[in-house]
Write a protein that binds this DNA or RNA. Structure first.
Length: 604
RNA sequence: UGAGGUGUAGUUCAAUUGGCAGAACGCCUGACUCUGGAUCAGGAGGUUGAAGGUUCGAGUCCUUCCACCUCAGCCA
């Protein structure tokens, strides 16, 4: 199957991908390449802080940075862990992040860096800044610094320690490093301008004292550099050409530039782009972390999580994530991407790569009265009906008692319902025509318990010799020969289209109570007995599923629904219900269009 | 209300830099079909945030206004 995957352009390695579409950042790089601004080099970096798992928003940045490196001659993308806050960072995250980037299909070769490896150089830079009279040790506490910083409309006031001599600053800073002062008692600040219109330029803190063991440097340091100081210098050390970050750092760019210029160092260009927002989801490490810690989800890799590990466990191919990131484009304006776009990429990829099998999610027992008791036929079914040789065939046992999908039967069928109903004939996929003769119900509840049917022996293979047609084809499994399985259906985690717009406290109130539905009585065809962990299938007519990597085991299969198939019947059904409610026969042609009918999200 | 940024179809992005406003997703219709899938064909959908101005011609240039986003952590 590997060869055919490649033939379809499907791959887990991004190197095989076609170049991403152009955007304003690539335009800039094109221009730089043309003018030789960076001596022909293109060096980007992806700089995560190891304080949580990567999510789909990071994928956008990864695809951008690694994609640029891939698409330009000699391009390189570094992976750098921006680990300057010992309180939040952990090796677990470092490993998870690397795993996720590799899974996404990108490689950093030997270009793996840690800001914590630069602590020594960073310290030397700080010393140099002091020597140049551009930084000072400030004894104000955090509260006092805040109070003297001014506001958006009012300038701040100078720290009383701003005028310290270079010698005194040098001495104090060295003693800060030596651990002579308690946590929080002093900081190193850049000496810029307390009246600057960019608040970040009002003598920003460069170093703080924190007696906190760091996951990589242990207790070697008790002073830690801040982001604004660390990031630009790390970029500079590594010879980055284009430092791509999200727009919330636009206000920090003057500081990025100031630090590098103050030290006369190699100076990459920072360019900002808008972060990804997805409707019905929250992309914020803090929120995702709280979902994990509060036990609202099963962990960082819960298939409902928008984390890369969540998508992986849910069965999303990395190629689909990359395709999505290419399709959403890149710009600076705020945006809220419809998850339908992600689903579209998912289906497009899975359609070409997932073998088809049959599984009945909510079984309804069918007894074929005219099929001989004890008889079993092995019917041949292609894994990939559009191009059978591509994936070959498997045998599917057929017998007197089957299960079909409950939703494929309606006792009083809707006008446009094509499937099974009393007296109706349908085709059983890859098998025979089947006609419903009678319905057996629970005498107490009235629930449909079983269908009594007949089959037409002349229709084996799915064609009638007399040429008669059936409208519907439904999937099925043999009762005795199918396997029981657990199927997990996932839906969006939030019921609001833009959960980010809600106040923090309210967010738990807009959780979708139906985000996980577990079906314990599903039946799947025999051929799935040896399905491997993570393997992806299309359950015909239902959707794409994968074998859960955590809970599935031989003899106890668990499947995750990755994404459903497009379901035009569901639309018809929903429209019918709506029309009825409004007292109109149906939704006419021109009518309802203006209301934005069928839009997958509300406004605001 | 300071500074910075952003406004183009329902959504996300294009528009060869002043020359017929397009694509993808979504939606609708039809064809085909042993998946109501896939595929194919077609369609609807725009006062380019607004108003002025320059120009033969403006999404693009100028002026004014409006809306939204970001910034007042010893987080990143």
């Amino acid at each position: 199957m590997d060869d055919s995957l490649k033939k379809n352009g499907s791959s887990d390695d991004a190197a095989a991908s076609t170049p991403a579409p152009s955007n304003f950042i690539r335009d800039i790089i094109d221009e730089d390449t043309r003018t030789g601004k960076w001596g022909g080099r293109v060096v980007t970096r992806f700089p995560p802080e190891p304080n949580g798992y990567l999510h789909i928003g990071h994928a956008k940045s990864i695809c951008l940075n690694f994609g640029v490196a891939r698409d330009y001659p000699g391009g390189i993308c570094h992976l750098r862990f921006d680990d300057t806050n010992p309180e939040k960072e952990d090796m677990e995250y470092v490993e998870a992040i690397q795993r996720d980037i590799r899974w996404l299909g990108f490689h950093w070769g030997d270009k793996l860096f840690f800001a914590s490896d630069y602590y020594g150089r960073l310290y030397q830079c700080a010393l140099e800044l002091i020597r140049r009279g551009k930084a000072y040790v400030c004894d104000l506490d955090a509260d006092e610094i805040r109070k003297t910083r001014g506001t958006l409309t009012q300038p701040g006031t100078n720290s009383p320690y701003r005028a310290r001599s270079v010698e005194e600053n040098l001495d104090l800073f060295q003693r800060m490093k030596a651990g002579e002062f308690p946590d929080g008692s002093r900081v190193l600040r850049a000496k810029i301008d307390m009246a600057h219109s960019y608040i970040v330029m009002r003598d920003p803190v460069l170093y703080r004292i924190r007696r906190q063991s760091h996951y990589r440097t242990g207790d070697q340091w008790c002073i830690y550099p801040m982001y604004d100081f660390t990031h630009c210098l790390s970029d500079s050390f590594e010879g980055i050409t284009h430092s791509l970050c999200t727009v919330e750092f636009e206000n920090n760019r003057p500081l990025y530039d100031w630090v590098l210029d103050a030290l006369d160092l190699y100076h990459p260009r920072q360019i900002e782009f808008a972060p990804l927002n997805l409707n019905f989801t929250i992309l914020s490490k803090r929120f995702l972390k709280s979902l994990v810690e509060d036990g609202i989800v099963d962990g960082w890799d819960d298939p409902r999580m928008p984390t890369l590990s969540g998508f992986r466990r849910r069965g999303c191919p990395p190629e689909a994530i990359r395709d999505f990131c290419d399709k959403i484009g890149l710009a600076k304006r705020d945006s809220l991407v419809d998850v339908a776009m992600l689903e579209s990429s998912l289906r497009a990829c899975l359609n070409l790569t997932a073998p088809r099998v049959m599984a009945v999610l909510r079984p309804l027992r069918v007894v074929i009265e005219n099929y001989p008791e004890g008889q079993v036929e092995e019917l041949e079914a292609p894994y990939y009906p559009d191009d059978p040789p591509k994936m070959g065939y498997r045998k599917v046992p057929f017998s007197r008692v089957l299960y079909v999908e409950r939703s494929d039967f309606m006792e009083e069928p809707h006008r446009k319902f094509w499937r099974l109903a009393p007296g109706r004939e349908v085709r059983l996929r890859w098998a025979y025509f089947l006609r419903c003769k009678s319905v057996i119900k629970d005498p107490d509840t009235g629930e449909v318990m079983e269908l009594r049917c007949t089959y037409d022996p002349d229709t084996r293979g799915g064609q009638a010799p007399d040429g008669r047609k059936v409208r519907g084809t439904i999937h099925w499994v043999s009762a005795d020969h199918s396997l029981s399985a657990e199927v997990r259906l996932y839906d969006r985690l939030y019921s609001a289209p833009n959960p980010v717009a809600h106040k923090n406290r309210e967010v738990t109130e807009i959780l979708n109570p139906d985000s996980l539905e577990i079906l314990n009585t599903a039946r799947v065809e025999q051929s799935l007995a040896d399905a491997k962990s993570g393997a992806r299938y299309q359950f015909e007519r239902t959707g794409y599923f994968c074998v859960d990597s955590r809970h599935s085991a031989p003899g106890k299969l668990v499947f995750n629904r990755t994404v459903g198939l497009r379901d035009s019947w569901a639309k018809i059904f929903k429209q019918g219900a709506r029309g009825k409610r409004k007292g109109k026969g149906r939704t006419g042609k021109g009518e309802g269009r203006g209301r934005g009918r069928g839009r997958s999200q509300g406004q605001s």
